[in-house]
Amino acid sequence: MMTTNSSSAGSSNGRREFLRRGAAAAAGAVVAGLAGVAARGAVSRDGMVWQINPARCVQCGRCMTHCVLTPSAVKCVHTYAMCGYCRFCFGYFDPGAPELTTAAENQMCPTGAIRRRFIEPPYYEYSILEDLCTGCGKCVKGCNTFGNGSLQLQILHDRCVQCNECAIARRCPAQAIERVPLAKWNRMKSEFGAVPAAVWQHREPDANA
């Protein structure tokens, strides 16, 4: 009972049908060609994910506000291996803090998302409470300015919905958000690795590779 458009006879219809079939074959070839182009692409068998390059990030704060998700998929993450366990942590304390206690007015973090825990004199452990962090980057700026730079902003991939075009990549002033193959998604600050200065450059696609 498969139905098609019933057609009436006639030579003009036969010619039209012939042209239609020819065009259909050509369109099929175009689609196949596109698939070929895709299959040829080197990088591309994997899916791609968005990721912040911490070497470029300038902590402008737009990650907090421009992600399509509310709250943002970007949060602060802590590479403990790079941390100096400072007593006076510039990611934790506001530079103008009246006293160095854990009172809210002394903290850099507007949401109190950093937990400070005494380890042994003079060391304190700092950890991020992910549910409270808004990804504003204030602590990252403090830590990168005066400390070891163990705090960084990163896109958390259990939250990120992998938009076709990342809304914060579009608004990032430093081109710090890159599309990387799924296989290389876990690119954190390396342990005691060099952190080059943020370099502006015209966005080149191969910078992502």
């Binding site: 993450v77 403990y80 042994e120 991939h157 259990d158 939250r159 992998q162 799924l182 998604w185």
Partner: peptide, 16 residues
Amino acid sequence: GYVQPVYHPPTPARSA
């Protein structure tokens, strides 16, 4: 004897 925790980034929700 404090052992440094290691941060494990969450795995992507979208896998191959």
